[in-house]
Design a protein around this nucleic acid. Structure first.
Lengths: 231, 231
DNA sequence: TAGATTGTTAATCGATTAACAATC
DNA sequence: TAGATTGTTAATCGATTAACAATC
């Protein structure tokens, strides 16, 4: 959790300051989900209080977070739901698709490949990779599994932005190296292993075992921390 | 990320202060994994510098984190690998199994059921639940899928501690309510939905879509934050 | 003793929260 | 105007980090 960051010069420039705190970035997707729900219910505006309830945080945090995007609320009224969704998507870079490659087609990799949600959310699965001879050539969700040697070509061809590591931990670092060499811009790592990559490549680690162990700690303790998320 | 916590009176009392910071708790599983690797390589001791490298953090953080467990290092030498694993497991409550129930046997639920790692890590899958008539009665990984009405009985029978939600988001809150009513002590939520539970029940949210969106933000920005984890 | 490395202190940084003036 | 609610300020809290005395 170190490292600074800064916004790219994307679109409008009404943001007061180009830097959005890490904790805020991690909550924007949660707000977005709530806002989309509100939009589907035809709610034109929402107050920080309502949005906070839906996101499981408090209203002060919502206002503070949203203030980093600019001033899109109206005092006495609330925030324009549609406008806010648009601005959050702009900031998060969701205005364009980010194709992903899944490396490793064991149980988890197959489940990810078959999970329709990726496509719907702007992260289409563009390629599958596995080194095992009995996996190469097979198809999952309509995509053929390729050998790692094809990785760079596929990344270039499909403009793949995200590499998803779903291999055993023992292979994670090697795969990470291959993904970086192939040109992916970010990595989502499901393997139980810390991977080292260049500082320019953001990595998110999702580790089942870690999550369960954290729960184990808090469930034996009197007071639980509420709703921790992946960050 | 609110809430206080405190250690249960588990075993030894050599801990200087009963409260371990949330950020430290989230890193203990990472240190543990590195230490187990060292133990397998027959390394008797490790310095904070080495451990930091393996865990992807800096040495000061390692020393600060470990100081919350007590003094298990030796100046000029380092930390006793075996002893440290033991102490971390004691603090995290890993000295006993925590059976889990998986609710929802779609792609992800099936992958989780078939994932052998749970058993090996002290979180044996003790029961499977799904409401769909075409799922109830089927078997995955040697376990029969039960109807939600059997949940409370199964939790009691197998002393299930953790409920894993792998249903569509629309069902997440209902399932969470059922899990709490059935008596699970903590919840791991894979659904893309914020769930409300009593403050005494720790919840960890693992959300694919959120992770990808966070990556989307940082991959368009000049500097990436290194190795963010699910917490 | 000399070298290595911990455990702790203190400074710094970032995130959270409450409060409230601004303003619709 | 009166009521509602934002956007911002300032206080507080927790986490990180560097530095170093303690000590093996």
């Amino acid at each position: 959790m170190s490292g600074g960051q800064q916004n790219s010069p994307n679109g409008t420039g009404s943001r007061p300051n180009g830097r959005i705190p890490e904790a805020t970035v991690a909550r924007l997707p949660v707000y977005r989900r709530a806002l989309i729900e509100l939009a589907e219910a035809r709610r034109p505006t929402v107050s920080s209080e309502q949005l906070a309830d839906m996101a499981g945080v408090n209203a002060a945090k919502v206002r503070k977070d949203l203030s980093h995007l600019g001033s899109y609320g109206t005092r006495g009224v609330g925030y324009d739901v549609q406008l806010l969704v648009y601005q959050i998507e702009l900031v998060l870079g969701l205005h364009r698709d980010s194709p992903v490659v899944i490396v490793g087609l064991g149980n988890l990799g197959q489940a990810l490949a078959n999970y329709g949600g990726f496509q719907a959310r702007g992260f289409p699965v563009a390629a599958l990779i596995d080194a095992a001879p009995d996996k190469v050539g097979r198809s999952f969700a309509g995509l053929v599994v390729h050998h790692p040697r094809d990785l760079a070509g596929l990344v270039a061809e499909h403009q793949i932005a995200v590499g998803i590591i779903a291999t055993p931990s023992s292979a994670a670092q090697l795969v990470a190296d291959q993904l970086v060499a192939a040109g992916v811009r970010s990595i989502l790592n499901f393997a139980s292993a810390v991977i080292a990559v260049p500082a320019s490549i953001p990595v998110r680690q999702v580790d089942l075992a870690t999550e369960l162990q954290i729960l184990s700690f808090y469930q034996q303790a009197p007071l639980a921390p509420s709703q921790s998320a992946a960050s």
